[in-house]
Write a protein that binds this DNA or RNA. Structure first.
Lengths: 337, 337
DNA sequence: ATAATACAAGTAACCGATTACCTATACGTC
DNA sequence: GACGTATAGGTAATCGGTTACTTGTATTAT
């Protein structure tokens, strides 16, 4: 494969001149020389070597997207805009999918440092499904090695991050159900959802503000997939005094809950109202279409890239951008009879 | 950031020895020296620089996944296994999503060559939505520059590829409908589906073999999203003599078709049977759950990685692996009344 | 005792760029 | 004519590793 040395020889100039011409560096070069070089490059089928460039520049123009899942629409939608925007700015994107396994996250971080990525957009994986801990060490390791980081989907101090106000989202969802006349409202939580605590807090606060006391039996948890929601709804609806409405913290679980209710012969929304979190084609497509608290996925991606650019270029103080959720009303909630 | 020169100085040895120890090269080194070096590396917080390694080795241990979409479950599921398997083998994965724009594909190819990726797993984008052409030049360009390539979702000569026998899938689906007594079977095609021609051929051949003549008005095309299916089903069902069953070439379109039928007040499956292509959560979740021709996504990913490894390591002749589809019977088809 | 071999490590070229610094002309000014 | 300054281009160090080849010493064989 041709190098700039080959071009230099063919055009009868030095490599410095070749480099200048090929990169449009601000240094005078005679038009005639320029043409000779361009010609030679073309004839040799020259392809610049970004590896060598990276080494010399000490920048790789590479960013990693480090996320817990890639089959969930939530991450997929964000990933799409991130990869696209980074591409527009000349960065390539490494896909790093931990599949919710914390050891994989650590491995990725190690490798990303070795590969000298310029930045990482990072949605941390929980250490164990049962808890809400993330491995702050991984993040620190990246920063210690001079890599710009932007986080989302979790809380860190001292890192740029895009934060979705799911507390308010849950508050709004609960209030919506209250307005529809519901008083016994269930809450299906995820065993490892990142910001679930704030969702649960929103739910609890809304009830409290409405003067409704919290019934712990109305709060249950399951895994983040459809079967998690399926089982949770059964637990709730078998209660002596079951809820008339339920809030579910994620998209798959909400669909599972809907399915569970149907299988029990419960009509949605006539006998049970359901609100999910995260919007996707799935939510539109089920029967009845789900009312959901939508997170602004495109915006999350957009902002993440902007924040990362800031960090990579100006190395300024970390910034946090707060984004709002939006209640998308479809047909899965009804006034209490 | 510490380099092997720093380690060499600190341990009082040469860089060659450091490199040998750190990479476990087969060259005798005294245990004492080895320990000194490892110690020094640890104390300096040494991080190997894979960029420098890549330059010296002329291998990057990087592979690109070049696909037309990342929000469609079909690609997402494949992407997950590919990224995982490559990771196990020490490769990082560049995510390259063309969003079905052919110019983007060309840009990616250019950049991937410059970045000297070792291989590309490639599902080509159609040149124009209307036609079935792919840009073979892009593939050639990769190969010409010594990059291993494995293709899927399209046909090429002289490249390793994993090929899904959708012809047989369509054949089987059509026969299934025939067995259920249907005689007027519609076909909803995609404007840019890769192997759609074979799907259509399977449909046509099955009918012919059953002695049923082809009615061109029963074959319509739309875009690959839900609205494409939605509009197509309306076209078909407004026919003077509408079909009693329909085959749809992709997952989103099938769901759109289902929705369209419902909106027209047509009962599925009582009045209209529908079979889709590609399986996903979506197909399970709709009402009624869709009967589909499932493509073996995990297997596609698995095989793609295996074929790529072959190409990268042994540079052997290209191989083609054929995979079968599977008819997943759910509830969207019924016997003709 | 000496030659041959194994062991342990070092020297320096190389991978393919970038770029600080230097050199040689040409031109204009006083 | 001497000097300052653009203009055009070259030299060589550098980025951080790898590795072919060399060297010096210890061990074994003869």
């Amino acid at each position: 494969m041709a190098t700039i040395y080959d071009i230099a020889k063919k055009a009868g100039v030095s490599v410095a001149t070749v480099s200048r011409v090929l990169n449009g560096v601000d240094h005078p070069v005679r038009e005639e020389t320029r043409q000779k070089i361009i010609e030679a490059a073309k004839e040799l089928g020259y392809r610049p070597n970004k590896i060598a460039k990276s080494l010399a520049h000490r920048r790789t123009y590479t960013v990693a997207l480090l996320i817990p899942s890639i089959t969930n629409n939530f991450y997929t939608e964000i990933a799409e805009v991130i990869e696209q925007k980074l591409g527009e700015k000349g960065y390539s994107t490494y896909l790093c999918n931990t599949q919710r396994m914390i050891e994989k996250e650590t491995q990725y971080v190690d490798d990303l440092i070795a590969r000298r990525v310029d930045g990482v957009i990072f949605s941390p994986t929980r250490v164990k499904p049962e808890d809400n801990l993330v491995n702050a060490k991984n993040l620190e390791e990246l920063r210690k090695n001079g890599i710009a980081v932007v986080a989302f989907g979790s809380h860190f101090s001292n890192v740029s991050q895009v934060y979705i106000n799911t507390y308010e989202g849950a508050l709004e969802a609960t209030r919506y159900l209250l307005e529809l006349g519901h008083r016994r409202i269930g809450f299906i939580d995820g065993l490892e959802a990142g910001t679930r605590k704030s969702r649960r807090r929103g739910y609890i606060d809304a009830l409290k503000m409405a003067g409704i006391s919290i019934d712990a039996s109305l709060i249950v948890s399951g895994n983040l997939e459809m079967d998690g929601g399926y089982e949770c709804v059964k637990k709730l609806m078998r209660l002596a005094n079951p809820p008339t409405a339920i809030i579910v913290v994620n998209n798959f679980m909400a669909i599972g809950a809907l399915k569970g209710a149907k299988d029990m012969g419960i009509n949605v929304p006539e006998e049970l109202s359901i609100i999910g979190f995260d919007d996707s084609k799935l939510s539109e497509v089920v029967e009845p279409p789900l009312t959901v608290v939508k997170q602004p996925l495109k915006e999350i991606g957009d902002v993440a890239v902007e924040l990362l650019m800031e960090q990579m270029e100006r190395e300024g103080a970390p910034r946090m951008v707060k984004l709002k959720t939006q209640l998308v009303v479809r047909a899965s909630c009804a006034r209490r009879k």
